[in-house]
Design a protein around this nucleic acid. Structure first.
Lengths: 203, 203
DNA sequence: CGTTTTACAGGTCAATCGTATTGCTATAGC
DNA sequence: GCTATAGCAATACGATTGACCTGTAAAACG
């Protein structure tokens, strides 16, 4: 047999070619031939690594989710102790999700392409249903710490506020992608929301 | 010539057939033949009313937007004077946008299908860029009235809060469609946000 | 009444899709 | 060094797509 090849490395390369195309044409508008050409390989070779389009899509989704999670962690973890306040952690996390740079914009466009499929595809929908609660718990944990520190009103439910943050981030992202507002404006709106959330108990 | 036909009425029928299919398969997954079959007409007849698929899509989008706007107005305008507080108007408006019933769910799924296309299609994107500011102004107007009445803190910027509400509604809708939370839970989250927004100046 | 125009049916078209198949080549393993 | 096999290229396949094109019946209109 010929030289052994790192399968995962090849699959990642193909997934990244898929993202580049899907971010500008959607998943339906991206054919296997397109992906192969973008990755600089033949259709036959692509089929050697993915036995069907669905399999390729699923692999690419799991990969992009892992990368997105890693980027958030990479941004939050290195913060010096004194800057790692709940508010700062939440802000940096959400900012990393917003389409503030070209790479993130591509990622978000791909995520949306998957989102549409997920609405009709049970297998993909499960991914969303499993991922969001984990994020919500992370956010809620930060909010509970903030409540203990007296940085937010005691009456607020952490899980509720966490879900509101996620939904808001999602909406801000959508409208930024549509150029309804700029990415910077999305960040400003996020900060306005956080200002209101991180208000100590007024009474 | 044969009996004159109400063109607009036929086109509306076709658009509604398109929605039914697009809400469960997406716009890309819906062929002209599918739409014709769903509408109970031949492909030839469909093409008699729409010279291209793109034209049909654009017509159906404009139609669904008009209907959505009309439904909001129908819900808000008949409210008795004493119930037409800014908070109530905003709540009912947003509730009408959430996928709380099957009809609204279908409408939202179609909207999302268009959203994905809009990201890549300049002509569709213009629709979004023109529609949202109008909605934001309507919301901002309600918020200014609330501020005059002293129902919300004076320091809040109406346009900012209006855009936050729209983005939040959008995010809540997305996650309701993915069954991350129930439509009822989306409404509860909206109310939680409104509770915080409609808090008189604490100082 | 005759002509023109509208409303539609049906078929054809090239293009494109995902998938399946075949065959060659180079090397890992014995 | 022989051979089995992983890696890949190339091609073919049937299905489906949106866009055309032609034919025909009927009724509106002069």
């Amino acid at each position: 047999m010929p030289k052994r090849v790192d399968h995962d490395e090849r699959r990642h390369r193909i997934a990244e070619a898929l993202w580049r195309l899907a971010s500008s044409r959607g998943l339906d508008g991206t054919s296997l031939r397109d992906v192969a050409a973008e990755a600089g390989i033949s259709l036959g070779q692509l089929q050697h690594y993915f036995s069907s389009k669905g399999e390729m899509l699923l692999f690419a989704l799991e990969h992009i989710n892992k990368l997105a999670e890693a980027r958030v962690l990479e941004r939050v973890v290195p913060l010096p102790e004194e800057d790692r306040s709940p508010r700062r952690v939440l802000r940096e996390s959400i900012a990393e999700m917003l389409p503030l740079n070209e790479e993130s914009r591509t990622g978000n466009l791909v995520q949306i392409a998957y989102f549409v499929r997920a609405v009709h595809d049970e297998r993909l929908r499960r991914h969303a249903r499993e991922g969001i609660p984990a994020l919500r718990e992370f956010f809620a944990g930060q909010l509970r710490i903030a409540a203990q520190r007296g940085e937010i009103a005691a009456g607020r439910d952490a899980e509720t506020e966490a879900m509101l943050l996620i939904a808001l981030a999602d909406g801000l992202t959508s409208y930024a992608l549509l150029d309804v507002h700029s990415p910077g404006e999305a960040l400003r709106l996020l900060d306005a929301h956080l200002d209101r959330l991180f208000t100590p108990d007024p009474r």
